[in-house]
Protein backbone atom coordinates (compact mmCIF):
# COMPACT_ATOMS: atom_id res chain seq x y z
CA UNK A 1 0.00 0.00 0.00
CA UNK A 2 2.84 2.31 0.88
CA UNK A 3 4.20 1.77 -2.59
CA UNK A 4 0.97 2.81 -4.27
CA UNK A 5 0.85 5.98 -2.22
CA UNK A 6 4.38 6.79 -3.20
CA UNK A 7 3.60 6.28 -6.88
CA UNK A 8 0.57 8.54 -6.61
CA UNK A 9 2.59 11.30 -4.95
CA UNK A 10 5.30 11.01 -7.60
CA UNK A 11 2.78 11.16 -10.42
CA UNK A 12 1.00 14.13 -8.89
CA UNK A 13 4.24 16.06 -8.41
CA UNK A 14 5.31 15.45 -11.99
CA UNK A 15 1.85 16.39 -13.23
CA UNK A 16 1.91 19.60 -11.19
CA UNK A 17 5.34 20.55 -12.51
CA UNK A 18 4.15 19.94 -16.08
CA UNK A 19 0.99 21.96 -15.50
CA UNK A 20 2.97 24.83 -14.02
CA UNK A 21 5.37 24.70 -16.94
CA UNK A 22 2.48 24.79 -19.41
CA UNK A 23 0.93 27.74 -17.60
CA UNK A 24 4.22 29.68 -17.55
CA UNK A 25 4.84 29.10 -21.23
CA UNK A 26 1.25 29.99 -22.03
CA UNK A 27 1.58 33.31 -20.23
CA UNK A 28 4.88 34.04 -21.99
CA UNK A 29 3.23 33.23 -25.29
CA UNK A 30 0.40 35.64 -24.54
CA UNK A 31 2.93 38.38 -23.78
CA UNK A 32 5.16 37.82 -26.78
CA UNK A 33 2.71 36.73 -29.51
CA UNK A 34 1.70 40.28 -30.41
CA UNK A 35 5.27 41.41 -30.69
CA UNK A 36 6.25 38.41 -32.83
CA UNK A 37 3.36 39.13 -35.22
CA UNK A 38 4.44 42.75 -35.42
CA UNK A 39 8.01 41.64 -36.21
CA UNK A 40 6.71 39.51 -39.05
CA UNK A 41 4.66 42.39 -40.44
CA UNK A 42 7.70 44.68 -40.28
CA UNK A 43 9.68 42.01 -42.05
CA UNK A 44 7.13 41.85 -44.89
CA UNK A 45 7.07 45.64 -45.18
CA UNK A 46 10.88 45.59 -45.41
CA UNK A 47 10.57 42.96 -48.11
CA UNK A 48 8.32 45.23 -50.18
CA UNK A 49 10.72 48.11 -49.75
CA UNK A 50 13.50 45.83 -50.99
CA UNK A 51 11.55 44.79 -54.10
CA UNK A 52 10.15 48.17 -55.11
CA UNK A 53 13.02 50.35 -53.98
CA UNK A 54 10.98 52.71 -51.80
CA UNK A 55 8.28 52.38 -49.19
CA UNK A 56 5.22 51.43 -51.23
CA UNK A 57 1.58 51.51 -50.16
CA UNK A 58 0.58 47.89 -49.75
CA UNK A 59 -2.97 46.61 -49.40
CA UNK A 60 -4.05 43.93 -46.96
CA UNK A 61 -3.41 40.46 -48.34
CA UNK A 62 -6.16 38.48 -50.05
CA UNK A 63 -5.94 34.69 -49.97
CA UNK A 64 -5.44 32.62 -53.11
CA UNK A 65 -6.56 29.02 -53.11
CA UNK A 66 -5.76 25.95 -55.15
CA UNK A 67 -2.11 26.69 -55.92
CA UNK A 68 0.96 24.75 -54.83
CA UNK A 69 2.98 27.61 -53.38
CA UNK A 70 1.29 30.98 -53.96
CA UNK A 71 -1.18 31.73 -51.19
CA UNK A 72 -1.64 35.49 -50.84
CA UNK A 73 -1.87 38.46 -53.17
CA UNK A 74 -1.12 42.09 -52.35
CA UNK A 75 -1.79 45.13 -54.48
CA UNK A 76 1.03 47.62 -54.42
CA UNK A 77 0.84 51.31 -55.32
CA UNK A 78 3.84 53.55 -55.68
CA UNK A 79 3.79 57.32 -55.84
CA UNK A 80 4.44 58.62 -59.31
CA UNK A 81 4.06 55.24 -61.00
CA UNK A 82 0.87 54.52 -62.89
CA UNK A 83 -1.08 51.32 -62.65
CA UNK A 84 -1.56 48.77 -59.95
CA UNK A 85 1.21 46.30 -59.33
CA UNK A 86 0.74 42.87 -57.84
CA UNK A 87 2.93 41.01 -55.38
CA UNK A 88 2.51 37.51 -54.07
CA UNK A 89 3.38 35.63 -50.93
CA UNK A 90 4.63 32.11 -51.66
CA UNK A 91 5.55 29.31 -49.25
CA UNK A 92 7.20 26.11 -50.36
CA UNK A 93 9.18 23.30 -48.84
CA UNK A 94 11.44 20.51 -49.99
CA UNK A 95 13.49 17.89 -48.17
CA UNK A 96 15.97 20.48 -46.89
CA UNK A 97 13.48 22.87 -45.34
CA UNK A 98 11.07 25.72 -45.96
CA UNK A 99 11.24 28.90 -48.02
CA UNK A 100 8.81 31.80 -47.63
CA UNK A 101 9.14 34.75 -49.96
CA UNK A 102 7.49 37.71 -51.62
CA UNK A 103 7.49 37.87 -55.39
CA UNK A 104 6.80 41.26 -56.95
CA UNK A 105 5.68 42.12 -60.50
CA UNK A 106 5.28 45.51 -62.17
CA UNK A 107 2.07 46.66 -63.80
CA UNK A 108 3.00 44.86 -67.06
CA UNK A 109 3.49 41.56 -65.21
CA UNK A 110 7.25 41.69 -65.63
CA UNK A 111 9.22 40.12 -62.79
CA UNK A 112 10.31 42.98 -60.57
CA UNK A 113 12.10 41.31 -57.70
CA UNK A 114 11.78 39.03 -54.74
CA UNK A 115 12.46 39.08 -51.05
CA UNK A 116 13.07 36.06 -48.87
CA UNK A 117 11.13 36.23 -45.60
CA UNK A 118 12.20 32.90 -44.15
CA UNK A 119 14.73 30.39 -45.40
CA UNK A 120 15.31 27.33 -43.26
CA UNK A 121 17.12 25.35 -45.95
CA UNK A 122 20.16 23.44 -44.75
CA UNK A 123 22.24 25.09 -47.46
CA UNK A 124 20.75 28.55 -46.93
CA UNK A 125 24.07 30.37 -47.19
CA UNK A 126 25.09 28.61 -50.41
CA UNK A 127 21.67 29.33 -51.84
CA UNK A 128 21.92 33.00 -50.86
CA UNK A 129 25.39 33.49 -52.28
CA UNK A 130 25.13 31.55 -55.50
CA UNK A 131 21.51 32.04 -56.51
CA UNK A 132 19.48 34.68 -54.69
CA UNK A 133 22.15 37.38 -54.59
CA UNK A 134 22.92 36.83 -58.27
CA UNK A 135 19.26 37.37 -59.18
CA UNK A 136 19.05 40.49 -57.06
CA UNK A 137 22.08 42.12 -58.66
CA UNK A 138 21.50 40.94 -62.24
CA UNK A 139 20.36 43.22 -65.07
CA UNK A 140 18.31 40.51 -66.74
CA UNK A 141 16.65 38.90 -63.75
CA UNK A 142 14.47 36.40 -65.62
CA UNK A 143 17.53 34.83 -67.21
CA UNK A 144 19.26 34.33 -63.86
CA UNK A 145 16.16 32.68 -62.41
CA UNK A 146 16.49 29.82 -64.91
CA UNK A 147 20.14 29.18 -64.00
CA UNK A 148 19.59 26.93 -60.99
CA UNK A 149 22.94 25.11 -60.86
CA UNK A 150 24.48 26.64 -57.78
CA UNK A 151 25.48 23.97 -55.26
CA UNK A 152 22.05 24.06 -53.66
CA UNK A 153 20.10 22.97 -56.69
CA UNK A 154 16.99 21.77 -54.90
CA UNK A 155 16.43 25.06 -53.13
CA UNK A 156 17.06 27.01 -56.31
CA UNK A 157 14.64 24.82 -58.29
CA UNK A 158 12.03 25.39 -55.60
CA UNK A 159 12.45 29.15 -55.81
CA UNK A 160 12.27 29.03 -59.62
CA UNK A 161 9.04 27.02 -59.51
CA UNK A 162 7.56 29.41 -56.97
CA UNK A 163 8.35 32.41 -59.17
CA UNK A 164 6.93 30.70 -62.27
CA UNK A 165 3.70 29.89 -60.50
CA UNK A 166 3.39 33.44 -59.18
CA UNK A 167 3.93 34.73 -62.73
CA UNK A 168 1.04 32.59 -64.00
CA UNK A 169 -1.23 33.78 -61.22
CA UNK A 170 -0.26 37.38 -61.97
CA UNK A 171 -1.26 36.91 -65.61
CA UNK A 172 -4.64 35.53 -64.57
CA UNK A 173 -5.36 38.34 -62.14
CA UNK A 174 -4.03 41.17 -64.26
CA UNK A 175 -4.54 40.22 -67.93
CA UNK A 176 -2.54 42.54 -70.23
CA UNK A 177 -2.57 42.03 -73.91
Amino acid sequence: MANTKRYVITAITLGLICAASGALIGVTNAITAKRIDQNEKDNIQRGFAEIYGQNPVVSDPKPIEGKDYTNQVYTVEIEGVEGVQYAFRADGSNMYGKISMLVGFDSLNQFKGMSIIANTQTYASTLNQNYIDKIKTAENKSEKIEDVKCGATYGATLIRDMIHEAQEVAKQINPKE
Partner: peptide, 23 residues
Protein backbone atom coordinates in the same frame (compact mmCIF):
# COMPACT_ATOMS: atom_id res chain seq x y z
CA UNK B 1 12.59 14.31 -15.50
CA UNK B 2 11.43 17.10 -13.21
CA UNK B 3 14.65 19.05 -13.75
CA UNK B 4 14.42 18.55 -17.49
CA UNK B 5 10.86 19.91 -17.55
CA UNK B 6 11.90 22.93 -15.47
CA UNK B 7 14.85 23.66 -17.75
CA UNK B 8 12.79 23.16 -20.91
CA UNK B 9 10.19 25.59 -19.59
CA UNK B 10 12.74 28.33 -19.04
CA UNK B 11 14.38 27.65 -22.40
CA UNK B 12 11.04 27.95 -24.17
CA UNK B 13 10.31 31.22 -22.36
CA UNK B 14 13.73 32.63 -23.21
CA UNK B 15 13.24 31.50 -26.81
CA UNK B 16 9.93 33.35 -27.06
CA UNK B 17 11.31 36.53 -25.52
CA UNK B 18 14.28 36.39 -27.88
CA UNK B 19 11.95 35.92 -30.85
CA UNK B 20 9.86 38.89 -29.77
CA UNK B 21 12.50 41.39 -28.72
CA UNK B 22 15.73 40.30 -30.44
CA UNK B 23 14.56 38.63 -33.67
Amino acid sequence: PAYIVIIATFVTMVKMFANAFLP
